[in-house]
Design a binder for these strands. Structure first.
Length: 874
RNA sequence: GCCCCUAUGGCGGAACUGGUAGACGCGUCCGACUCAAAAUCGGAUUCUGCAAGGAGUGCUGGUUCGAUUCCGGCUAGGGGCACCA
């Protein structure tokens, strides 16, 4: 009997070293073996790993180890999303060098991840801030430029006038800069864009193929791309002078409601609004007011619909005597469509709210099915459904869809300024991707500005454009811009004096191709070889947080198509399977003085009214607050390193995978973690006991098995089948439940056997141990290695194959059938698996409980669902 | 405001494509071991009832021999968002 406790502190580093020395997790350079690429979203090197990382990487590691055991050549790499603002913020605050800060963090986090025992091929480690990574990215940018995938245009940014810097949306809090508190201004800058919008239709259509993505993410992306079918309609502006002919284009999805028009509405940024503001102070003031307004949907939804009459008017397309007033309003956006709409109050709630506010009235033109033209009136609720046209002259009586076509047909034949007055158009909400960032710690955009030649690409042989290391954060603004020498260079075309582009790339660019780089991470001449990338891609299973559902995943999907266009890869969709895991949450604690306390600063006991918490420092009462996402501000974090150092990585991994379904949040609790630790010890004892009973693998399988031995073998193989199935479905919680059931069963059975068991029983236990260790190896790899070694194996279980289910042992010859009367369970019968219906019927009716419930009555029918259930219906 | 998701014991959750509701774990209670405690092991644990039984998967109605599962209506909680013409 093994009585020693399992000691993860000694065991875990030992096996990590053995794996490393043996190169156990090296991906083989073999393009013929079946491949499996499992990838977790790579981390930002913020300083230390947190529990969210532990959960994410534990899940990925189960998949990687399982697939490896199943015989796949597994690619499971790790890298660092290493550019970004925190390094610059740290530089400004603590006078540290962003590169040094980043690399120190990477070193810490790498060793923390290694102590988790992840089965990662570390030889492929990348960091996006290294020139040997971003040089390829710069080359891609230039290739995109050549391929027409890049644009340079003006765009609005949040500008902090005190810090002299551009702010990200999340850095603008209540209209003010997060650091300076200054009122943020909207400023127009010329910026670089990748033309993702031109891939809108393709990115939308591609979602249909992604059947191994969560529907939720697909829906979010679909809404983000925002396809809408409608038409452009050109209105002629009315003026007192007929010689000045001006037009305005609007986009509408409801051309059928054209006779319900009461006004045109234009965005505050619309050119017409700007020109109208030139000699009308009230208009320019209104426009300024709109710019200060909130930009989030929620803020805008609740905001009052406002507008100002420009005094201008447009002519109705079907009636040149019909003058339609034009308003500048706060609810039309320049970025969408043409920045102008026609307002039909009866059939659009926003238009109705606005019309009611300014007294424009409404004309219903679509009659719902349950109304008549005479009775149908609109007051406060617009009708936005389909129906039959009314009050619409020649359209009256048509359906909404027929009227849409009729309007487009009629106006399509009218030519104004050489173009039809209406054309069908599919509009997308998705806008081009602005990648310019006025920051230091990012990938330099490899472009040179020359006063004579304009914008000139850096010659490809001059790449990479490397970030200078001697930068100063003493001054405000972009350090690249005020570096004494870095930006000054010669024009590659005319050799005259020129300056470098000082904008760097959005870090979403870095993460848009890293998965491809991993396939050939050490290639110095190219981002990756096409042959190797095409072998490994797409990623078979991608795992990460739901917070990246839209931007990162959409950018990566676009970028992959762009890489395909320039010939670097042959695929369009980078991620075949996607899984989004839930967060790690924890209780929060507040002291009597209202300060947040760390879990380690609190002690618990059970009082009459439940759990009570007191402060460890002074025994003062502590209130137990809501369970929330672990965060530094609420101080409810648990440091993974503390857990790994005390209870071990396997315990932490097991706990992260048990209990909660992986897509949901998991509550970190001390009791739960100790339960996992107890289980680690329990398994250790069980395997030790079996090893004492059966120290060696049998060379000969016994020819006959007793019922006792068969029960063990059947139990093992049927649980194995279910564990396998649950891992395939990424249902880690239920696969662990199955493993626990099996070890519970083995433990009980082992305690009940004779002191000198027969040979077949010993065989069954030996077989069980060899299978069960391989079953939990993906979740608790160190424990599995130690157990495997106790069982006498000389090579790591991490290199062993997954056990095979013996189908003859999972098939049952006798089954238990529940028996219901009127759908309510009354008992069960045990019959042969192939028993015929008449036998089952007789057995069921003989049950005492059934007889009692029947109480002499005759059943009207008896439903027998084979191998499932018997239902006696009265 | 719109879209999406979720709701099961004291708690986290399980239940394959409509077929035994509550697996597995946490907690609690009882017991064993111990001088004692910790650790460990065994048992109990949806509610109600002495019991037989009855009720029960947010509420409500329906389909079905049978509903946690499917459909309609509602309530609560969570997430996402773009006043998108």
């Amino acid at each position: 009997m093994s009585s020693e406790r399992y000691n993860p502190r000694a065991t875990e580093p030992k096996w990590q070293k053995i794996w490393e020395d043996r190169g156990t997790f090296r991906t083989r350079d073999d393009l013929t073996a079946p491949k499996y690429y499992v990838l977790e979203m790579f981390p930002y090197p913020s300083g230390r790993i947190h529990m969210g990382h532990v959960r994410n990487y534990a899940m990925g590691d189960v998949v990687a180890r399982y697939k490896r055991a199943k015989g796949f050549n597994v690619l499971h790499p790790m890298g660092w999303d290493a550019f970004g603002m925190p390094a610059e913020n740290a530089a400004r605050q603590n006078k540290t060098d962003p590169a040094a800060w980043t690399y120190a963090n990477i070193d810490t986090m790498r060793s923390q991840l290694k102590s988790m025992g992840l089965s990662i091929d570390w030889s492929r480690e990348i960091a996006t801030c290294k020139p040997d990574y971003y040089k390829h990215q710069q080359r891609m940018f230039l290739d995109f430029l050549d391929a027409g995938l890049v644009d340079r245009k003006k765009s609005k940014v949040n500008w902090d006038p005190i810090d002299q810097t551009v702010l990200a949306n999340e850095q603008v809090i209540d209209g003010r800069g997060w650091r300076s508190g200054a009122l943020v201004e909207q400023k127009e800058l010329t910026q670089w864009f990748l033309k993702i919008a031109s891939y809108s239709a393709e990115l939308l259509a591609g979602l249909d193929e992604l059947d191994r993505w969560p529907d939720k993410v697909r829906t979010m992306q679909k809404n983000w791309i925002g396809r809408s079918e409608g038409c452009l309609v050109r209105f002629v502006l009315g003026t007192s002078d007929d010689s000045k002919h001006q037009t305005i284009d609007i986009f509408t999805t409801r051309p059928d409601t054209l006779f319900g028009a009461r006004f045109l509405a234009i965005a505050p940024d619309h050119p017409l609004a700007r020109s109208a503001a030139e000699d009308r102070k009230d208009i320019s003031e209104f426009i300024d007011e709109c710019r200060r307004g909130g930009t989030t949907a929620e803020a805008i939804e609740t905001a009052e619909k406002k507008g100002i009459d420009t005094g201008l008017w447009a002519v109705h397309p079907f009636d040149d005597q019909w003058k339609i007033p034009i308003f500048v309003v706060n609810f039309v956006l320049m970025e969408y469509g043409t920045g102008a709409i026609f307002g039909c109050p009866a059939h659009d709630q926003r238009d109705l709210d606005f019309a009611n506010a300014v007294g424009l009235g409404n004309t219903p033109v679509i009659c719902p099915a349950d109304e008549t033209a005479e009775s149908f009136k609109v007051d406060k609720i617009a009708y936005d459904g389909d129906g039959v046209l009314i009050n619409s002259r020649f359209l009256d009586g048509l359906s909404s869809s027929a009227a849409k076509q009729e309007v487009i047909k009629r106006l399509g034949s009218v030519v104004i300024d050489g173009q039809p007055q209406a054309i069908s158009k599919v509009n997308y909400r998705l806008r081009d991707w602005g990648i310019s960032r006025q920051r230091y710690w990012g990938c330099p955009i490899p472009v040179i500005h020359c006063s004579d030649c304009g914008t000139v690409a850096v010659p490809k042989e001059d790449l990479p454009v490397v970030l200078p290391t001697d930068v100063s954060f003493d001054r405000l603004g972009n350090p690249l811009d005020h570096h004494p020498s870095w930006k000054f260079t010669k024009c590659p075309k005319c050799q005259g004096d020129a300056v470098r582009e000082t904008d760097t790339m959005d870090t979403f660019v870095d993460s848009s191709w890293y998965f491809a780089r991993f396939t050939d991470a050490n290639n110095t001449s190219a981002p990756m070889s096409r042959e190797i990338a095409d072998h490994w891609l797409p990623v078979d299973q991608y795992i990460g947080g739901i917070e990246h559902a839209i931007l990162h995943l959409l950018y990566a999907r676009f970028f992959t198509r762009a890489l395909k266009k320039i010939g670097l890869v042959g695929i369009s969709e980078p991620f075949r399977g996607l899984f989004t895991q839930g967060m790690v949450v924890h209780e929060t604690y507040k002291s009597s003085t209202g300060e947040w306390l760390q879990p380690t600063e609190v002690e618990f006991s059970n009082g009459p009214a439940g759990r009570i918490a007191v402060s460890l420092a002074d025994a003062s009462p502590v209130s137990i607050g809501a369970i929330e996402k672990m965060s530094k501000s609420k101080r409810n974090t648990i440091d993974p390193e503390d857990i790994m150092n005390s209870l071990g990585a396997d315990t932490a991994r097991l706990f992260m995978l048990s209990d909660s379904p992986p897509e949901r949040d998991v509550i970190w609790s001390e009791e739960g973690v100790h339960g996992s630790f107890r289980y680690v010890q329990q398994v250790w004892r069980l395997i030790g006991d079996i090893a004492s009973l059966a120290p060696d693998t049998f060379s000969d399988i016994p020819t006959a098995f007793s019922k006792e031995a068969m029960d063990i073998r059947r139990g093992v193989h049927s649980h194995l089948a279910r564990v396998e199935e649950n891992i395939e479905r990424l249902r880690f919680n239920t696969s662990i439940a199955e493993i626990r059931k099996l070890t519970n069963f083995l433990g009980v059975t082992l305690s009940e056997i004779d002191t000198v068991p027969s040979n077949d029983v010993v065989f069954a236990f030996r077989e069980a141990a060899e299978i069960v260790v391989r079953m939990f190896a993906p979740m608790m790899p160190h424990l599995a290695e130690e157990c495997w070694s106790v069982l006498g194996f000389k090579t790591p279980v991490s290199e062993a194959t997954w056990p095979t289910v013996d189908a003859s042992l999972t098939a049952k010859d006798e089954i238990i059938l529940p028996v219901q009367v009127n759908g309510k369970k009354r008992g069960e019968i045990c019959v042969a698996a192939d028993a015929d219906e008449s036998h089952i019927r007789a057995e069921a009716l003989q049950l005492e409980a059934v007889q009692k419930t029947l109480d002499g009555r005759t059943p009207t029918k008896i439903i027998i669902v084979p191998k499932r259930i018997v239902n006696v219906v009265l």
